[in-house]
């Protein structure tokens, strides 16, 4: 999992999915999830996997990122699949897990995060949207700091086997980052208050549909036909 890489792609990658509206992409993902969760056909799941990979290929999304993303749901779903000892349902579980994870991740990778967070926070009170923005902003500041400090500790300690002192050093890095973060929270809050946080900060929600959305509409209709036939 690498949120920073996906954020970079979401903001800088140019592809046709980027030209579709965030709303259409969210609706597309919801449609795909509905079809995935209600199917019992392995052929449909295989078709969906090929379709999603084709979507990634046509949008020139990096395979390395997609493969890394697929590993986590594959692993956790395989725990269930193996335990079931029924390969028919096991394949169903694996297929649903991997295809749904790739679909949602692809929407995230091709949508500017601010727009996506704006849509997600619609059903919740305004403070939820503020919390999401604040978390997202703080994440990148903390990740950099945490990674740098852990790297510095590793360089200083050299190639050392896992030991209690190493675990303690790592925990101290987390502690130090938490203390820094705690201090940072106050400063960030004051800074964002100046920019309107908590005083009616307007979240820019993009509801406009675009011509490229028609491709997603065509895709979801095709998927629906495939689901019906399977």
């Amino acid at each position: 999992m690498d949120l920073a890489t996906m954020d970079y792609l979401a903001a800088n990658h140019h592809c046709w999915l980027q030209r579709c509206s965030p709303l259409a992409k969210v609706l597309f993902a919801a449609g795909v999830l509905t079809f995935l969760l209600t199917t019992r056909s392995q052929a449909f799941l295989l078709g969906m996997l090929v379709f999603i990979l084709g979507l990634a290929l046509s949008n020139r999304l990096p395979w390395r990122v997609l493969l890394t993303l697929a590993i986590i749901p594959l692993f956790f779903a395989s725990v269930f699949a193996i335990s079931l000892r029924d390969w028919n349902v096991g394949v169903l579980v694996l297929g649903r897990a991997v295809v749904s994870a790739l679909t949602v991740a692809m929407v995230f990778m091709t949508t500017v995060p601010v727009r996506l967070l704006g849509l997600i926070s619609v059903p919740m009170p305004a403070v939820f949207g503020e919390l999401m923005y604040f978390t997202y902003r703080s994440f990148f500041l903390l990740l950099e700091s945490l990674k740098n400090t852990l790297r510095a500790v590793r360089l200083r300690r050299g190639r050392e086997r896992i030991s209690l002192s190493r675990v303690r050093a790592m925990a101290q890095v987390y502690g130090m980052t938490l203390v820094r973060a705690w201090d940072m929270a106050g400063r960030q809050y004051d800074l964002l208050r100046l920019r309107g946080l908590g005083q009616g900060l307007r979240i820019n929600r993009d509801w406009r549909l675009r011509p490229w959305d028609l491709t997603l509409l065509a895709a979801i209709i095709a998927i629906g036909v495939g689901w019906y036939c399977a």
Binding site: M1, D2, L3, A4, P125, V127, E130, L131, F134, T135, Y136, S138, F139, L141, L142, L143, L146, K147, L150, Y174, T177, L178, A181, W182, M184, A185, G186, Q188, Y189, L192, L197, G198
Partner: peptide, 24 residues
């Protein structure tokens, strides 16, 4: 939380730290 807005930053920072820890 709406009544204790100052805590908002701390909740967000804690969520961000957990997310960063999960990334490593």
């Amino acid at each position: 939380l709406r009544k204790q807005r100052r805590l908002l930053s701390q909740v967000a920072i804690m969520a961000a730290l957990g997310l960063a820890a999960m990334n490593i």
